[in-house]
Structures are given as structure tokens and as C-alpha cells.
Nucleic acid binder design. Structure first.
Lengths: 164, 164
DNA sequence: GCGGAATTTGCAACATTATAACATTAGCAA
DNA sequence: TTGCTAATGTTATAATGTTGCAAATTCCGC
């Protein structure tokens, strides 16, 4: 269900998407949640690259599909997908990305490349525990942790701007 | 220039603001940056509580002041203040808060109370180093790190909704 | 002080992101 | 079928953020 540093290496992205959709079906079934055609299509679009996609980008593609959709359609689908743990919202970009750890209990951390735009989601236990510890020192009860790191991915750090 | 867990305890907030403004003047002088009246006023407004303030909230108060301001005025002032390290933007809230570690080299981490809305900024070396390490493992060059923890502050965790 | 360059602000319009409110339809079970 | 709930459609609007250009202010060398 996962692999590491995927976005930075060439890979069979078709398979990547197919796997994500298959996982999503399984997960929704387990949750007794309905992965309707609209929701599935939105998930597919989000997964079309490892770059986060804005809600209105999704909307535009739905329009091309011939689907006469309005913003609430997209936001509702995205809300649903987030609740099922299938996509994440990147707060610093107002955009959404497919979760590469769907179904796993995880605390994501996102590495966002300023140059190519790809985002890598990591499970970083060391970071999570450090955050929990720091919060505990202030007697703060964490509920949701957002960690987003903007910078340069290995490829872009050496040569500029890739599209992978 | 700092103290710990300030927002959660009663304190002389007048002095808190005055100190922040005094620090800001010093810092801007050191940077050869101009803390103009508008910028100073915006900083003061941001500091009026330990709750983050939206750009349009600032705008509304400026309007009450009789200042005929438009959005760019506020955003420009906020950009300036961010560049000087005097305020932080909380991405998950689209709002701004005064920096409690202005002038210090720091990597902030924000504890955001879902109940009272107060935000505590921490310097968390353990967290920073864990993030840096995790990024390094992926050969990623971090540039800017966002860490925002939503949850419940000590006061609200016991009894509901304070205003401090 | 004076004049030119650079910074800052005013202002109007616009772009982007997100939500509210209410009507309609689809899925499903008694 | 009937009736309930979840999901979607539809319209309008709210909230957040930006662009571009003109006017004013400030800085700085003279």
C-alpha cells in the first residue's frame, strides 16, 4: 500500500492511481461509506500527479468531463475523502493531495518542492513523538497536527525544475 | 523578550503589547526597515490578543480608526511584518499572530486551542531537529517549516471555553 | 534646502478559495 | 409503495488574497 520517495522517481503512475483507487474502494467498504462516482472521480483526479490540486482545478476537469458541477460538489467530495483518510489538504497551498498511507494509522509530514511542486508524504515517528512531547510540556492536548516543509527535492536541488 | 505559556495565564496584556512594539522598533532599526505608522498600527492590532487575527479583521479595525484602507494596505503591512519576523501567518487559519520570539533565531511551532482560540508559539528544538533529520533522510532541503497543532489548551481541556 | 531615485501608500478592479441555504434526487429498508 | 436518510444540484454569496498603476512620501547625495 506504500513505497518510499515515490514522487521523486519515475514510476508507473497508472498503477499508482489504480492502486489508490482500489485501496479506496476497500477502505470505504470497511467504513460502510459510499464511494460514489463523483467521489471516485475526484479521488482519481487528485491522484493524477504527485502535485497537490486545488479544488477549482478539480472543478475545471469535471467541467471538461461534461459534469455540470459547482464548487460545493467538489468541496463535499473532498471533505468526504478527507474523512475517509484518502486525501490530505495542504494548508499552506490550499490544495489537496492523495494520501499515500491510506488505511494506515499515520501522522503525515509533507515535503513540498518549491521548484517542481511535487509533494512527498512521510510518516515520521520521530517528528510525531517530538511534537507530542513538546505539546505535553505545555499540558496541551493535540488533536490534529499539521507539518508542512517547503523546500527543494533532491532532483530540483541539483538541476532546476523537473516535472515528474 | 519572552516568557512561557503566556496566553494561558492572566497577564498584563498592555505591557505585553507595549513590549512587542518596543521590540519591533528596535528590530526594524537594526534592519534599516521602516516601521511606518500603518505598519505599527497593524502590528499593535495583531497583538491585541493571543488569538490570531484575519487580514480582514485588521482591515475592519483600520476602517473604524477612520483609516480609509483597502486590502492591499493590510496585506502589505502583514508581508512587511512577516519579513521582519514580527508576525507569523497561521496557514491552517488564514490568520496572523504576533511573534513571541521576535529577534531570536527560532523555528516556531504553534499550539492552537480549538476552544478558546488562543495560540501559543513554542520554540521546539527537538521538533526542529526531528523534522530536519526526516527531511535529510529524503535528501530534501528544507527552506520553511510549518508546524501547527490544533487541540485543547490546559484551561479548556478541564473547563470549557475561556476568553483570556 | 533641492532634485532624483526608491520606497511606501491609495485605489480600483479582479482573482481565488470556500460556504450557506434550500430544492431535488438516489439508495435503501419496512 | 412509502418513508427515511444520504447525496447531489443550484444559486447566490462570503471570505481571502492579488494585480497594476498612480500619487505621495521618504531617503540621500549634492
Amino acid at each position: 500500500m506504500s513505497s518510499s520517495a515515490l514522487p521523486y522517481r519515475p514510476h508507473n503512475h497508472q498503477a499508482c492511481v489504480a492502486q489508490a483507487l482500489a485501496d479506496a474502494r476497500t477502505i470505504c467498504q470497511q467504513h460502510n461509506a459510499r464511494l460514489t462516482p463523483t467521489r471516485e472521480r475526484v479521488l482519481e483526479l487528485i491522484w493524477q500527479s504527485h502535485k497537490p490540486l486545488g479544488a477549482y482545478d478539480v472543478l475545471a476537469v469535471l467541467a471538461e468531463d461534461g459534469h455540470n458541477a459547482a464548487p460545493p460538489t467538489v468541496y463535499r467530495a473532498l471533505d468526504f475523502l478527507q474523512q475517509q483518510g484518502l486525501v490530505h489538504r495542504i494548508a499552506s497551498l490550499n490544495a489537496f493531495i492523495g494520501c499515500t498511507h491510506a488505511g494506515e494509522r499515520h501522522n503525515g509530514m509533507f515535503l513540498i518542492c518549491r521548484s517542481c511542486g511535487n509533494v512527498l508524504e512521510l510518516t515520521a515517528p520521530g517528528v510525531s513523538s517530538a511534537v507530542t512531547r513538546a505539546a505535553a510540556e505545555e499540558s496541551f492536548q493535540p488533536d490534529n497536527v499539521t507539518i508542512e516543509v517547503a523546500g527543494y527535492c533532491p532532483r530540483c536541488a541539483s538541476e532546476p525544475a523537473h516535472d515528474g
